[in-house]
């Protein structure tokens, strides 16, 4: 289990990396944390001709507040996000998901950009960042462009990034603070990739007792993050902070069923589709339950 040979380039600037990517190392791959790429190379399932190591590029690792958004550099490691006070305060949904990525040793190396570019359907960040309506900043030979999370993930391990583009930054809007939020996943063992996951964000009106909108995004069981819009609408129509226990139970059940219905077609073709559908429905319900709980407590 040893990687095949490749040429190694240590990029010192983003521009140098971009030049390499469209020049000398055109058939190469970017190397960030290596936590997904190197295992594939060890198994020789990936055998790039060249690696462009991004780790020595200064200024790609940061978490900062920029007015009504948070900007995170692509090379920021999961571990830095895990211990960021800013994220814990401003983006609790993200903060809840990060400790569920792999194990400490993986989070010490794995990066935000690598995880998003890799677009593993079972990864946490694509699901959560889609829920947060994040914008991906891609740098290419002809400059930068911004891609919405919903358009960024295009399928199984596939993104809208072009071959010669580098994911540079992720921007997460802060214009609406959620009243309730939750991320839940189910994995066979702690730290494993999730079989299914659900992100829920609840937004309330000014007085704070009606749910004016919700974002519910499913991951893991589907090939890319999926917004379940019928569920979002149901929540928006039915939920307020004063919803009685009995009618809440009713809504929760419907959320479960509706989630199953909405994602069934995306799950087709996977092993044990019935189980996965059921599991996903249950997780959506649990995520909503816990988001409601937080809303009530706040």
């Amino acid at each position: 289990m040893k990687p095949a040979s490749f040429h190694y380039y240590r990029a010192r600037s983003l521009q140098e990396a971009l030049d390499l990517l469209s020049g000398a190392a055109a058939n190469g791959k970017l190397l960030a944390g290596g936590q997904s790429l190197i295992p594939l190379m060890n198994l020789r399932l990936a055998r790039p001709e060249a690696l462009i190591d991004l780790n020595s590029i200064p200024g790609l690792s940061y978490i900062r507040s920029e007015g009504n958004k948070i900007a995170i550099g692509a090379l920021t490691r999961h571990r830095e996000m895990e211990f960021s006070e800013l994220l814990a305060k401003e983006l609790p949904l993200l903060a809840e998901a990060i400790p569920q990525i792999g194990h400490p040793a993986i989070r010490n190396r794995g990066t935000l950009g690598g995880s998003l570019a890799h677009a593993d359907p079972a990864a946490e960040l694509p699901c959560v960042l889609t829920a947060l309506d994040a914008r991906m900043v891609a740098a290419g030979p002809d400059g930068e462009r911004v891609i919405r999370a919903e358009d960024f993930f295009t399928g199984f391990y596939a993104t809208a990034l072009a071959d010669h583009e580098i994911l540079k930054e992720v921007r997460i809007p802060l214009d609406r603070h959620p009243a309730g939020w939750s991320f839940v996943e189910f994995a066979r063992r702690h730290g494993d990739f999730a079989l299914a996951e659900a992100s829920v964000l609840l937004f309330a009106d000014g007085a704070g007792d009606r749910c004016t909108s919700a974002r519910v995004v499913i991951g893991g069981s589907v090939e890319k993050p999926v917004r379940v819009q019928d569920v979002e609408k149901l929540i928006q129509d039915e939920i307020s902070i004063r919803t009685q226990a009995s009618s809440l139970a009713h809504v929760l059940r419907r959320v479960e069923q509706l989630t199953e219905t909405e994602i069934r077609s995306s799950i087709a073709g996977r092993e044990n589709p019935d189980y996965l559908c059921h599991l996903t429905g249950v997780l959506a319900r649990r995520a909503l339950e816990s988001a409601m709980e937080r809303w009530r407590k706040a």
């Binding site: 290596g34 040793a105 190396r109």
Partner: peptide, 18 residues
């Protein structure tokens, strides 16, 4: 596992050059 600048990492999925 080894400690890389004090943080635990897996040395089988890191390149020596890194």
């Amino acid at each position: 596992s080894v400690l890389l600048d004090g943080a635990v990492v897996r040395s089988c999925i890191l390149l020596a050059v890194q």
